[in-house]
Design a protein around this nucleic acid. Structure first.
Length: 289
DNA sequence: AGAAAATCCTGCCTGC
DNA sequence: TGCAGGCAGGATTTTC
């Protein structure tokens, strides 16, 4: 559920509460949180002690802290929140959460940073950084629509060549990153396009419109602190955003479309739910894929 | 090779 | 009351 706006809210929290501090110690509980760190959780913890947090960065749904090591080198600690991951800044005395997977303490003895994750789709890993400061481990992730490096024209051209549903393309993080199920549905509603229409059958201006709406809706959500349906998504202080009040499609089954009044429908697509307006977003005629 | 399905995981909710 | 099953779904792995 955390998509670009929610992850950016967390990044800003790290910026405010963690950047500039020096790690004393990192602890990982269980092996799952570090499963993408191939040398293992023990190795990961060992590498982090004494590291200085220089920056908190983000691409799409990936976060990373740029760390300066005691021996003068630099690397990145990647965090992906998955479905339910949270980074929380808390007093060291606060009781451990049920799903606490990692704890970072600092040499200033100030608040600690914790990684809590109920559904365990999230994870952390250490990676070398490329010349642009992007972890090599996520170099396959495409720029997101809020980055200067984002090239909408190139993405549209790539989409036009794809023989797959436009929603599938929006969710492909190697094509454009940061968009998940919620903002894909919202962008498609705004653009009045059904998500199962094939990219190759849409015009380039239409594809452009879809991408522009994706960017806009994520910016608006960011302005409201992100979207949250329950206590699972929170900022580093445990507070929720309120963009869910502004959703026009996602989770709105049975409610009238705010544009035409037709009741929003829910359909199954890619093993998940898609919400759309039957009138504003007619299904493609040919059910091909 | 490109596209799509299968897989991982826990908690909440519904229906019997 | 309890239990089974469905649902939430991002990214990687496997299959076609």
């Amino acid at each position: 559920m955390p998509e670009l706006p929610e992850v950016e809210v967390v990044r800003r929290g790290l910026q405010d509460h963690v950047v500039g501090r020096t790690l004393a110690r990192a602890e990982f509980y269980g092996t799952r949180v570090a499963r993408r760190h191939l040398p293992g959780a023990h190795h990961l913890a060992e590498q982090l002690g004494g590291n200085h947090v220089a920056e908190a960065r983000r691409r799409g749904k990936y976060l990373w802290m740029v760390l300066d090591t005691p021996d003068g080198s630099r690397h990145g600690l990647i965090t992906h929140l998955g479905m339910s991951g949270q980074l929380l800044v808390e007093d060291p005395g606060a009781p451990d959460e049920k799903h606490l997977h990692a704890r970072f303490t600092f040499d200033d003895e100030g608040p600690e940073l914790r990684f809590v994750d109920q559904r365990t789709f999230g994870g952390m890993a250490l990676s070398d950084l490329d010349d642009d400061g992007v972890p090599e481990a996520i170099e396959h992730i495409a720029p997101d629509p809020l980055e200067a490096a984002f090239d909408a024209k190139a993405v549209v051209a790539a989409m036009k060549k794809r023989h797959s549903a436009v929603k599938r393309a929006l969710l492909d993080q190697d094509l454009v990153s940061g968009i998940g199920n919620i903002y894909a549905d919202e962008a498609l509603w705004r653009a009045q396009v059904h998500g199962e229409r094939l990219c190759s059958t849409l015009t380039k201006p239409t594809l452009h419109r879809v991408l522009d709406h994706a960017r806009e809706v994520m910016l608006e959500a960011l302005g409201q602190g992100g979207t949250s349906f329950d206590a699972l998504y929170v900022n580093v202080n445990g507070a929720s955003g309120y963009f869910d009040r502004s959703l026009n499609a996602y989770g709105q089954e049975g409610r009238p479309c705010r544009r035409c009044g037709t009741l929003i429908r829910r359909e199954s697509f890619m093993n998940r739910s898609s919400f759309s307006c039957p009138r504003c977003q007619p299904r493609p005629r040919t059910l091909g894929r």
